[in-house]
Amino acid sequence: MERAEDKFFVALVVIVTVALGLIMRPFFGAVLWAIVAALLFEPLMARMARKMGGRRRLAATLTLLLILLAVVVPALLLGLAMVREVVAIYGRIESGKIDISRIFEQVQAALPHWATGLLERYGLSDMDALRHQLTTGIAGSFQTLASRAFDISQSAFGFILALGVMLYLSFFLLRDGQALAVRLEESIPLRPSLRRPLLEKIATVIRATIKGSLVVAILQGVIGGIVFWILGVGGALLWGIAMGFFSLVPAIGTGLIWVPVAIYLLISGAIWKGIILIICGLFVIGMVDNVVRPILVGRDTQMPDYVVFISTLGGIDLFGFNGFVVGPVIAALFMAIWDIFSKERKRRDAGEELEPADMKSG
């Protein structure tokens, strides 16, 4: 009878947990980023609390204000600037100041014979149809972005609500984070020798992933935008933000932006500008990713670059923007759990080997 009651209780725990997850699903992003903010700023908040005589509530309030001023407000201003840039570029496309068809004709005329033959080999010899598809696709993309910019007021309430939930939850996670971590550790049905390494691994991976990804994104976006502005490329702010966003995807990242622009500059006759952009892309923008990301991400997570790369892409595919945190965290959990399992199995096997020997000697 007791075993039946235990099974019912376990089933009840699972059902209630799943129900709570479904209720919180609309605010998954807000909860995730609240946890991320608390993990990133908890060391700073702890230092402030010690200097204030242990007043964690005041320290959490000041830390939350710092998050607002240093992270939220700049991100909002940057988003508004990007919206204006997208709308302006779409207006120039509509007015004909940016003629995508003419740009394609210039690229087509400058293609060498081997490139033309390669296109024909892959069935892309119908340049008129290809030009029409490319022109329609680019114009449609900017039209979609512009329409989203105009419709942003309709989703403003949902965004403000999610932002409010994130900040509200961040405050309590900062103030009560240590006590919550202890309760969480005690609630996990694992031995203490397994619980703490697992939780420490999760916290380390989240901190390292966010620090590495955001630092790399900011550096590459700023450098790329400045290079584009110096070279006189239109929409430098938009392309800088785009490079910062694509840098979240390891390995390929910013090349999706600056490589096509460099090719266009070379083909259109701006040889020196194209060469300068290629040099900056390879040895400045690219080196930021190759040097900074392994230091901030790979060193702390102890995950190979290819695991970070694949888990990031898979996470973004499943969870959208939130996936660049969720993907590496799940991958790190997988590696940590199997590492703990392997060590426990070796320890158990070693104990089983020693037991017969001890019995024989006794």
Rank of each mutant, 00 (worst) to 15 (best):
179 A>Q: 13
180 L>E: 04
181 A>R: 13
181 A>D: 10
183 R>K: 10
183 R>P: 04
183 R>A: 14
184 L>R: 02
186 E>H: 11
186 E>N: 13
186 E>W: 03
186 E>T: 10
187 S>N: 03
188 I>A: 04
188 I>L: 15
188 I>T: 05
189 P>Y: 07
190 L>E: 03
191 R>F: 12
192 P>T: 06
193 S>E: 15
193 S>M: 07
194 L>Y: 10
194 L>Q: 13
195 R>Y: 08
195 R>S: 15
196 R>N: 04
196 R>M: 11
197 P>V: 14
198 L>G: 03
199 L>K: 06
200 E>I: 08
201 K>E: 15
206 I>D: 05
209 T>N: 11
210 I>Q: 04
210 I>W: 11
211 K>W: 12
213 S>V: 06
215 V>Y: 01
215 V>S: 09
216 V>A: 02
216 V>W: 04
219 L>G: 06
220 Q>T: 15
222 V>F: 13
222 V>N: 07
224 G>Q: 08
224 G>H: 09
226 I>L: 15
226 I>R: 09
228 F>N: 00
229 W>S: 11
230 I>C: 02
232 G>W: 11
232 G>P: 10
233 V>T: 12
234 G>K: 10
237 L>M: 09
238 L>N: 07
239 W>N: 12
240 G>M: 05
243 M>G: 12
244 G>F: 11
246 F>L: 15
246 F>P: 02
248 L>E: 05
250 P>K: 09
250 P>A: 09
253 G>Q: 10
253 G>C: 04
254 T>F: 07
255 G>W: 05
255 G>K: 05
260 P>H: 05
261 V>S: 03
261 V>D: 01
263 I>L: 14
264 Y>D: 06
264 Y>K: 02
267 I>R: 11
268 S>F: 08
268 S>W: 03
268 S>P: 03
268 S>N: 10
269 G>I: 14
271 I>D: 05
274 G>Y: 08
277 L>Y: 08
278 I>H: 01
280 C>F: 12
283 F>L: 13
283 F>S: 03
284 V>R: 00
287 M>L: 10
288 V>H: 00
289 D>A: 01
289 D>T: 00
290 N>H: 01
290 N>F: 00
291 V>Q: 01
291 V>K: 01
292 V>L: 07
293 R>L: 04
293 R>C: 01
296 L>A: 00
299 R>K: 12
299 R>N: 13
299 R>Q: 14
300 D>V: 06
301 T>L: 08
301 T>R: 02
301 T>Y: 08
302 Q>Y: 03
303 M>S: 06
303 M>W: 03
303 M>P: 05
304 P>C: 03
306 Y>V: 14
306 Y>W: 09
308 V>M: 10
309 F>D: 02
309 F>I: 11
309 F>R: 01
310 I>V: 15
311 S>I: 09
311 S>F: 05
312 T>L: 04
312 T>P: 04
